[in-house]
Amino acid sequence: MTFEILAQAVINGLLMGFVFALVAVGLSLILGVAQIINFAHGEFLMLGMYTAFWMWALFGLDPLVSLPISIGVLALLGVCVYKLITKRILDAPRLTQIFATFGLSIFLRSLAQFLWTPNSRMIQNSWVGDLRVALGGVYIGAPQLVAAAGAILAFGVIHWLVEKTEVGRAMMATAEDRDAAALMGINTEQMYTLAWAVGSACVGLAGGLLTTFYSVEPNIGLVFGTTASVVIALGGFGSIKGAFAAGIIVGLIQVVGGFLIGPAFKFAVVLTVYLVVVAVRPQGLLGKY
């Protein structure tokens, strides 16, 4: 009995972990290439979720169908934010950058509240909404399963893009040393734009997938954003693989820790683990630093 509950917790944690991982990979990509932590990343996710919600509410599109739209909208948002804001402060002190993205997060959060009220909203009867798979005494929700699969797929694509393609190599060269990359003839401006587009598209996808089983409200980004920054720090800044692995770990710790200590403490457990890790390894799990 307890074993089954624990197994259930592990499965849930794992599946949620993949979603965290996807969100974190997007943040990590932007940090790695464009050298800035987007503290509005959680709010980007919130907008991704709202995009999926409104596609459903206004046009009856299932979130799985509107995924390309969520991805596109967010990629566009990422490019706009880069061109309008962060591009101008690339060489500014870190605090200025933090300041700007905090301002952005406050703006987006209150904009959502202004436009769509603070109420939380949920998509009813999406295709995968009520389905679940039984495995012995353990149930796996179809929405979570689909979300995890989508996250894994997306990570595969990004990993392939970064490791195997010409563009990816150019992007990593830019991440390594912007000036050297520019000397090698890489269009670093394009690489920054691309990183913002792909990094933001990740949360477009994650947002779309989340809406099948998660309600959306203007403040949803706070927890997800904080979690994502903890995840990339845990994985080690600049490591996309580290971010993905750490995302899964965080998902597991959250649910299992919540199960063992109490659900109210699940977030605190994650943060404590993070603090213990960086106390021992200040550069995170896979970071070079």
């Binding site: 804001i85 700007a100 301002g103 952005l104 997060s105 406050i106 959060r109 209150s110 904009l111 202004f114």
Partner: peptide, 14 residues
């Protein structure tokens, strides 16, 4: 509840 004040505040910060 409208959060317009926060919107302006956020914009100003940016």
């Amino acid at each position: 509840g409208q959060a317009v004040d926060l919107m302006i505040y956020g914009l100003l910060v940016i």
